[in-house]
């Protein structure tokens, strides 16, 4: 009985301030009123397979999507576009570095710019409602916003370009998982120091503390 009460009290204490950091105030919040009702991806989408000629899906293009735009430079709502890696990296087999090009020359891999997406989507899948939202945002000079999935704490310094530089570069999927099969990107395994160290030891590369922590 007593241990249970003690346990409950401690649970109450532990639930109080403790380790919860408030999320950093997101200075990039879009202004109020920018909302986009977006339907899910078209069920007729078949990836990179060519559209059947004269089929029922091609006879009448779907109506254009309503996008409420803000002033130029205002970011869009988070994850407005349901970007599907399964389609791009899987079906179309686009290499990771085509879009995340900075990974080979910068510590951060980054995300492709709006113009990079439009590089293909000016011609490809133009009638797709998600692509229409993309096109509208890029035309209005409004960047897209994405939820951050892979992050390392502030006290870890990870540099992408060194990991891609070797004779046998580290494959993206080794750390990020099989993204080509993910409809929504998720982190399957957490980034623990043990994972990093195991690989560093196996490949016999520097792993003393100061390489990553400074």
């Amino acid at each position: 009985m007593r241990p249970l009460i003690a346990g409950l009290l401690l649970a109450a204490l532990a639930a109080a301030p403790g380790c919860q950091q408030p999320a950093a105030p997101d200075a990039l919040a879009p202004p109020a009123g920018v909302r986009t009702p977006l339907p899910p991806p078209s069920p007729t989408h078949r990836g990179c397979a060519p559209e059947p000629q004269g089929g029922p899906a091609a006879s009448s293009p779907p109506p254009p999507v309503e996008v409420v735009l803000g002033p130029p430079g205002t970011p869009a709502p988070v994850d407005e576009i349901p970007f599907d890696h399964r389609v791009h990296a899987g079906d179309c087999a686009i290499p990771c570095l085509s879009c995340h090009a900075d990974a080979v020359r910068s510590p951060v891999a980054g995300l492709p710019s709006g113009k990079k997406c439009m590089g293909c989507h000016k011609f490809v899948a133009k009638e797709n409602p998600a692509v229409q939202v993309l096109a509208a945002r890029v035309r209005a000079d409004q960047p897209l916003r994405w939820t951050r999935v892979f992050e390392l704490p502030d006290f870890v310094r990870f540099t992408h370009q060194v990991h891609l530089h070797f004779q046998e570069p580290v494959a993206c999927s080794e750390c990020h998982g099989d993204v080509a099969t993910m409809r929504t990107v998720r982190q399957d395994e957490p980034f623990t120091m043990g994972r990093c160290l195991t690989c560093h030891e196996d490949r016999n590369v520097r792993h003393d503390c100061v390489v990553c922590h400074r």
């Binding site: 950091q21 999320a23 997101d26 951060v108 995300l111 890029v138 916003r145 951050r148 992050e151």
Partner: peptide
């Protein structure tokens, strides 16, 4: 049990790429 979840990172939760990237400017460099 309460500590296992760990401290949440203080990094901002969303990422905003460029619309038009500047020439030769690479993030992180």
């Amino acid at each position: 049990t309460s500590l296992v979840e760990g401290c949440k990172s203080r990094l901002p939760r969303s990422m905003v790429p460029y619309v038009t990237p500047p020439d030769d400017a690479v993030a992180g460099v």
